[in-house]
Nucleic acid binder design. Structure first.
Lengths: 205, 205
DNA sequence: CTGATTTCTTAAGGTACATTAATTTTCTTT
DNA sequence: AAAGAAAATTAATGTACCTTAAGAAATCAG
């Protein structure tokens, strides 16, 4: 397969977004910044290529610098369930398998050409030891992730497919424009045919 | 309403469980232990009484010493969706509202007479400052909570009601014995009538 | 112990959503 | 630009799960 040109960001820009992301919750000095960034491995992912496949060891947590990734679960009948979308400024991994060094349950694929920064489990552990402030940072990241997932559970239990679709459009308008309806349907837990019918009914009114 | 006798645990026992819980992830010295425990407020909750009601400010995160609590969401049609059960050795709160000091979306009610230890948001923040190891502790607690919720989403999207019921029985056999089928149904996202029918089919085979 | 309340069960009829399949539209590759 | 592949739409038919209702069983309050 012929590789496309990889547009490398100048180093000065490469870490801008992630440092701003970290800076929302903790403050780092020069040394801490250079130690942290030294642990990050830049990677370009072409559209439709995989960051992680089911069954592989999930070595990295990835910060999205640009582009759009999707994590999904494939069940025994090969039906996809989209677990999350990650746009620029988001973190994504198969958390259970990353933390416990187990084979991945999730597949993570690029929806668009993407630029990510990877952090290995071992390096994250070093980071916790060397710069304990990162315990706080990831405490907040995990807390927010927990809250988001819990809200999604509440909505899955209490709302109809149509209401969930509307919520999705409101909450992630940008993602909604970039992904296929098939992918949105698999996030909502309905078939693409049914989502299509919902949309047709909606626009009639 | 006539209050029942509250059986107070001797102090030496009162903190045993929570200190073992914390001790799974971090190690505390004497001073840290006494500072931490000084922030905890013991509370007895009679069966069916409320720890938190929708709309109230959620001031506490609660550690369950004994008994069983249930957190649920009430939608506009007054339908209950059970978000979690918390048995002894578990932490429970309306995390979004606790962290952001917003009115609670969830109601937390005692399924059985329960003994809990409450930690105020302000005191937790003091704890993070005085004993930074607690950042690590709650990082791990949040991480585990995130992983659990994500697994639940995967199962809600990919499994039938019957499969989810079976998973629930396997994962929480003790809880399954203590709560009503109505409550299990509302955790699974089905009506009690349908769960009853599932059980009838299952036992036929 | 007794009546009242809540839970559980069963069953009939209804609805939200799935399946299959055919057609059109959009996207991708060369 | 053309061909091929994937996505979206539409429609008919099917099913998992809901609603309503009524009776039986279990639990609770006095």
């Amino acid at each position: 397969m012929i590789r496309k040109q990889k547009p490398k960001l100048p180093a000065i820009l490469k870490y801008d977004l992630i440092l701003a992301n970290v800076g929302k919750h903790i403050t780092l000095d020069e040394k801490e910044i250079s130690f942290f960034t030294s642990l990050l491995k830049e990677k370009h992912i072409d559209k439709k290529d995989f960051v992680l496949k089911e069954g592989q060891l999930c070595q990295y947590i990835s910060f999205v610098n640009s582009g759009l990734l999707r994590a999904y679960y494939l069940d025994k009948e090969d039906k996809e369930s989209t677990i999350m979308f990650a746009v620029a400024d988001w973190w994504i991994t198969d958390m259970y398998c990353y933390i416990n060094r187990k084979p991945a349950m999730l597949t993570i694929q690029a929806v668009e050409d993407s630029q990510i920064l990877n952090l290995k489990k071992d390096d994250l552990e070093k980071l916790y030891v060397e710069v304990p402030k990162f315990e706080k940072f990831f405490r907040i990241i995990m807390q927010n992730a927990y809250i988001r997932e819990q809200l999604r559970i509440i909505q899955n239990l209490s709302l109809s497919a149509e209401e969930r679709y509307h919520q999705f459009l409101t909450k992630y308008p940008q993602v909604a424009k970039q992904v296929t309806q098939k992918q949105i349907a698999s996030y909502l837990g309905v078939t693409p045919e049914f989502l299509s019918a919902l949309r047709a009914n909606k626009s009639k009114r």
